[in-house]
Design a protein around this nucleic acid. Structure first.
Length: 152
DNA sequence: GCCAACGTTGGC
DNA sequence: GCCAACGTTGGC
């Protein structure tokens, strides 16, 4: 049984088209403890909703899956990286990442506005006011409901 | 570009 | 340990 997740990315920085082109990619740059802890829970073949944020419209654009479980994010000790954190070292890494693989890109975006309209999704982390998590769990019910919307 | 909401930092 | 100040996220 896979677990389900949602991961946000700004399409200007890394989009689902980028992932499709690369086939798979490290998910680096997460610098939030809660998001990091969720990544540490991820297992191979867990499924991920790929979400485009800070764009118009924001929403879920497709599916990816975990292809490498959590390991230290080396960009955290690279002084030339935008994600550098002086408190993270190879000996004592503070930040972790997973690798994700492309699964599918949907023919249309499932927008945040649409997700918010579904009473069945009212308890989703994503739709909660003020939520800013970039990595979050999705329940199997939510996963099934959302993927069913697409088939209508 | 605005701004609400949140997480982190650091003084005390 | 509290909490004000600050920086960031991300929808609109």
């Amino acid at each position: 049984m896979p677990n389900y997740w949602l991961m946000k990315s700004e399409p200007d920085a890394f989009s689902i088209d980028d992932l499709k082109r690369l086939t798979q990619s490290p998910w680096d740059g997460v610098r939030n403890y809660q998001a990091r802890n969720f990544m540490k829970e991820m297992k191979i073949d867990d499924l991920i909703f790929f979400y485009h944020s800070s764009c118009s419209p924001a929403g879920i654009v497709g599916v990816a899956k975990v292809c490498k479980e959590a390991y230290p994010d080396h960009t955290s000790w690279d002084p030339n990286s935008a994600y550098f954190d002086a408190k993270s070292t190879p000996e004592k890494p503070r930040w972790f990442m997973v690798d994700v693989a492309f699964v599918e890109k949907w023919s249309s975006i499932l927008t945040l506005a649409e997700l918010k309209q579904s009473p069945a999704l009212a308890d989703m982390v994503l739709t909660q006011k003020g939520n800013r998590l970039s990595v979050m769990p999705i329940s199997s019910d939510e996963w099934d409901y959302i993927t069913a919307i697409l088939k209508k």
